[in-house]
Nucleic acid binder design. Structure first.
Lengths: 187, 187
DNA sequence: TGTACATCAGTGAACGCGCGTTCACTGATGTAC
DNA sequence: TGTACATCAGTGAACGCGCGTTCACTGATGTAC
């Protein structure tokens, strides 16, 4: 039956939130519309009152996850002006590694997204820029070197997290995180 | 009809080669058994004379791609003793970025693999070790710092390549590659 | 060396399943008067 | 403010499609004598 506009808007928000969590945790191909809707205790049919397609949801979920993780006081967003160490430690923490569903969407979906439609990849590109902007709080400056160090830091952070998650050898997984944390601080 | 043992062995090799190329290029979920077999001009049925399942093929394809890219004179394998620059330049080249199907399987499949079966993830872990061993030709030494720099370099290389591939903004994609190349050389 | 039979690589159709999407329907909400 | 009607959020089943896997079959290859 019909729901009030506020209820409908809240349902939409809940769909995006659940999708953002599920896609990061199990990959884009690993999550179906039915999974997302049943996470809210709803059935599939209702989904298409809110979104035109799964692709549209994927794009919005990445955007939401990106904003959520880089603004406010979430996870690695503990970026302190001119102090890169705190942000690096947060991003490369075991907590962040072990909870991808709640973490950086750039790290969680970077190879998944390579095979998605252009619109989705553009949202991902915006998410990457947002990550680099967050790093800029810790590594400020308008010099060429500062800009390069931000991009370099982004690459090292994402690479280390992704490799640490993919590895079954827990010693190696921890070593990648520790080595990257230490070396990045010295740069 | 039945083929000779040599023919059969060659077919098996061709299946692994085609799979290694296709999985890297289009992702594990993006490639079906029919795609792999039709790349050889064969039909699906024959596949199961050689492999027990798609999972088994995935594992073997990753292994093959890993060996192929880290030994001999392929792509980024131009590692020169004590000279990291050549290897870094090769790995972070536009050629490598624009041809994932022929490149490092660790970079091509790092988030895909996170949602695969344990056996596949173990093969991936071996591939990561092999990448670090290749880096060890350029960055040798048994000190703690040398070991850390190898893991750090692996993270930065993989992260930069993956981000450069995922980004739609070609300026940003190139900048990530260039910045990482430059910064890694200074470490 | 030659012959009869067993083996098995590859074919092509079929099966079962899951997934994205559609649709007729329900009944509460929103709106026009 | 009250009433009659239109709207539309959500249901649950169905559709179409692609994919991994199976299977009966074919005929060349390998083997036993």
């Amino acid at each position: 039956m019909r729901r009030s506009r506020e209820d409908a808007a809240e349902t939409r928000r809940k769909i995006v939130d659940a999708a953002a969590r599920l896609f990061r945790g199990r990959g884009i191909a690993g999550v179906g519309i039915a999974d997302v809707m049943s996470a809210l205790g709803m059935t599939v049919g209702g989904f298409y009152r809110h979104f035109a397609s799964k692709d549209a949801l994927v794009a919005e979920a990445i955007e939401a996850a990106s904003v959520e993780t880089t603004t406010g006081s979430r996870a690695f967003a503990h970026a302190v002006k001119g102090k890169a160490a705190a942000m690096i430690d947060g991003y490369l923490s075991r907590l962040h590694r072990d909870h991808p569903d709640n973490g950086c969407p750039v790290a969680a979906l970077c190879t998944d997204v390579a095979h998605e439609k252009r619109a989705t990849r553009e949202v991902f590109t915006t998410a990457l820029r947002r990550l680099v902007d967050t790093i800029a709080i810790a590594i400020p400056g308008d010099t060429k070197d500062a800009r390069e160090r931000r991009l370099f830091t982004a690459a090292a952070l994402v690479g280390a997290l992704v490799l640490s998650r993919a590895t079954t050898d827990t010693d190696l997984a921890d070593a990648v995180l520790d080595a990257t944390r230490k070396q990045l601080r010295d740069v």
